[in-house]
């Protein structure tokens, strides 16, 4: 395997791992539930894509032909991550979870707590 190809695959794998780590780090660090929701929704999705592209390139090189089946997981994640973050936010609103005191627009959120 030539060096430039290893370099590209390493870039995708390391980038993917770094963004997944960042998503989990945000989960621990951010102050309240609604801000914590941002980290896994965005960073973990991009991290998985990086890993999947790296795995796709490597397995295609090893088998000598393009096998794009890793893209199935990527497309699946693109479709499902927003849905699970939406329903998590909705159930958090329903449970009247606390938000940070400096959060603006609290009255608007309160109106959504009871209708669902």
């Amino acid at each position: 395997m030539p060096f430039w190809f290893e370099l590209i695959v390493s870039f995708f794998l390391l980038g993917g791992g770094a963004f997944i780590l960042l998503g989990s780090f945000g989960l621990v660090r951010l102050p309240d539930f609604y801000t914590r929701l941002h980290a896994p929704t965005k960073a973990t999705t991009l991290g998985m894509w990086g890993l999947l592209v790296g795995a796709l390139l490597l397995s295609s090189w090893n088998s000598g032909m393009l096998n794009p089946h890793h893209l199935l997981i990527a497309v699946f994640l693109l479709l499902t991550t927003p849905v699970s973050s939406y329903i998590l936010a909705k159930s958090a609103l329903h449970h009247r979870l606390d938000w940070g005191t400096q959060t603006r627009g609290q009255e608007q959120a309160k109106r959504y707590m009871d209708d669902h």
């Binding site: 963004f19 660090r29 951010l30 801000t35």
Partner: peptide, 17 residues
Amino acid sequence: VARLMLRPRLQLRPAFV
């Protein structure tokens, strides 16, 4: 998101819109 989260002190302006 990475830039906001990796700051040594968190400076967020969260809001509902």
